[in-house]
Nucleic acid binder design. Sequence first.
DNA 1: GATGAATGAGGCTTCATTCAT
DNA 2: AATGAATGAAGCCTCATTCAT
Lengths: 207, 207, 207, 207
Amino acid sequence: MSPRVSKEHLKQRRADIMEAATKVFIEHGYEHTTMKHIMEAAGVSRGGLYQYFSNKEDLFEALLEEGLSEEAITTGVSLEKGGSHWTLLMQLMFGEDGNPDTEMDPLAPSKLEFFITGRNDMRRRAYGEKRYEKGLQIYNEIIKAGQESGEFSDHYDSELIARSLITFVDGLALDHAILPEEKVKLKEQSALFVDYLKMALGVSSSS
Amino acid sequence: MSPRVSKEHLKQRRADIMEAATKVFIEHGYEHTTMKHIMEAAGVSRGGLYQYFSNKEDLFEALLEEGLSEEAITTGVSLEKGGSHWTLLMQLMFGEDGNPDTEMDPLAPSKLEFFITGRNDMRRRAYGEKRYEKGLQIYNEIIKAGQESGEFSDHYDSELIARSLITFVDGLALDHAILPEEKVKLKEQSALFVDYLKMALGVSSSS
Amino acid sequence: MSPRVSKEHLKQRRADIMEAATKVFIEHGYEHTTMKHIMEAAGVSRGGLYQYFSNKEDLFEALLEEGLSEEAITTGVSLEKGGSHWTLLMQLMFGEDGNPDTEMDPLAPSKLEFFITGRNDMRRRAYGEKRYEKGLQIYNEIIKAGQESGEFSDHYDSELIARSLITFVDGLALDHAILPEEKVKLKEQSALFVDYLKMALGVSSSS
Amino acid sequence: MSPRVSKEHLKQRRADIMEAATKVFIEHGYEHTTMKHIMEAAGVSRGGLYQYFSNKEDLFEALLEEGLSEEAITTGVSLEKGGSHWTLLMQLMFGEDGNPDTEMDPLAPSKLEFFITGRNDMRRRAYGEKRYEKGLQIYNEIIKAGQESGEFSDHYDSELIARSLITFVDGLALDHAILPEEKVKLKEQSALFVDYLKMALGVSSSS
DNA sequence: GATGAATGAGGCTTCATTCAT
DNA sequence: AATGAATGAAGCCTCATTCAT
């Protein structure tokens, strides 16, 4: 008997499940999604699902990692291109084009859920912290680099600005998760925050 | 064990349950708290608990309302005193003393949970929106009044600033929920945000 | 202190509860009626209710007894009047006027429920049998008397006819409980059954 | 204890549960039967039971349908044989042999319960009506055919007779449910009812 | 590898009945 | 007598996870 499925197919199957799961998590949220939902959306059997992911948490974390690596790639690419640090910051916050009118990650609400509801679970908490640190570091490095290169003012501590930036993004995601699309004023709030960042980093308004 | 007496004692019992429930919700979060936890913490029987609150949601909303009325009182008091609008704003954000070193509401993480995990439930969503609108209005009115009195610049729309303020507070609560106490730098971030507000409202740094 | 309530009032209170309970049982049926329903309908407190009736079963049986005594009265009155046995039979089956277009006892469905769902309870079962026997006896006596007086044919055993009569009435009540008003054809079915009775009892069609 | 194998075995398992459930329903009646009773009788776990039937109502309806299809088969066979319409009617009422001494369906009391206690539930009520109509139709067709062929008198409306037939059967089932075996006089009452039918259909006594 | 039946812990809620006041 | 808070047994149902085939 030759192996029924090649390794490639396995990867594909895993990817398919993750894609289906993403849709389900977006629709029902983390807590209210059941393994059955995912099974059905992915067209996998119960046992099949558990072959790829040992539980819901594991599956969701895979989704989280995937998102992270995408971001990393984006960042990496941008770093090579060598625009200004400010441009880089904007790209990191708002995606490729660096404009604050981008759609929000539709999985974001579920991500928040995942970490909030799991805040009492040691493992999950540690994982959340690691993620936060990673994100913080990326922003911090750029800001620090910008300060060192003289592009940014060093009036404020780079890490503090990085933290605030994350806080703002998190707050926006939260409100976006809870309020109807039209009420969050994503774009306007982002623009206001960017104005503030310019001030805090001493960037002229001409960007 | 036995029926308590009349009127006042009932209120007390209800309050006791709410107090116990608050502790439980703080410890386990909204989703992971069960009615049994609350029963045991409050020393009530199953049926007794359901006599006061018809389900977990109902109970939690009672907690939310309670918090709201407390805030309202605070606000009311402050409004009468008639300090500057800026002082008022600071008091509203950081409590009586208006200093950004206050403790955060320990129930805040569960509140976020409540609204995030319930974002697909029509009733809950509507309730969340109403709450948001209420909060928004309070901040907005103060800012608008400040703008009209000339105390604040009207460079930015008052409502947009109010929204950003809420977004920041929400973001901070979120991070606080997820990260260990020492990492959030509540005080420093708050101070930075105050600077942000000063910029947006054109308030001089001498406050 | 004089007694707050006279004995008369107590009787009245009891009667009020029974009246309210009747309405509730008609609306919800026996099984699905709760003591709370009755309390509320009667405007009595929980404890008050239990002072008059020690449980749901007890209360319902009081209702049953009441119905029985009413019937007895009716019968009694009729017996005195001394019409024909046939007229008596018709009055017993269809009420005062002896016409088969009368409304059905609205509590009948709940009565059926009471005895069906309780058929495995010794006490209830015995009670049901006693009631059946009582009813059977009444019909049987009239039929037997009619047969002895020569008004009825004695081709069939009087008791058997009495039983069949009850079976038919029960069946009709059952269908009436389950089917919509217009589908049971109460009147027509009754007329047909009366025709049959005439035949079985050798009564001429001129009644 | 462990998963059974494929396809056929599943049907078997389902059938086993239904068989066990039937016993339980016969013993405790519909309302007083709990899913736990059934679980235990069938040797299935809670979840296992719910895999086959989503609740008690669903399970019971499966039992009802099963009974229906059995009847249908019986009827089908009989129709092919092409005896007299009268014979057919007797077979339908009293089973294959057409003699009124057959045992009664032991599940009948629970069936009555099911429809009586559920009479205020829209879904259940509609289901009950549908069943009634189906039964009515079968009897009606035979009677009508008999009338058209001249075997039966058409003095009475065929549908009315069909209804009365059902009413009688229901009444008998009811009494049988409530009274001890020996008191119902099933056989005698049935014989009397057959006379009733003969009268209504103008059938000579020689059957 | 895949399947999906089976498990059983765990949560929610209702309601008859009791009993201190 | 009347009140109604409190009790707790009893039911229902869901769902993550296991495991024989």
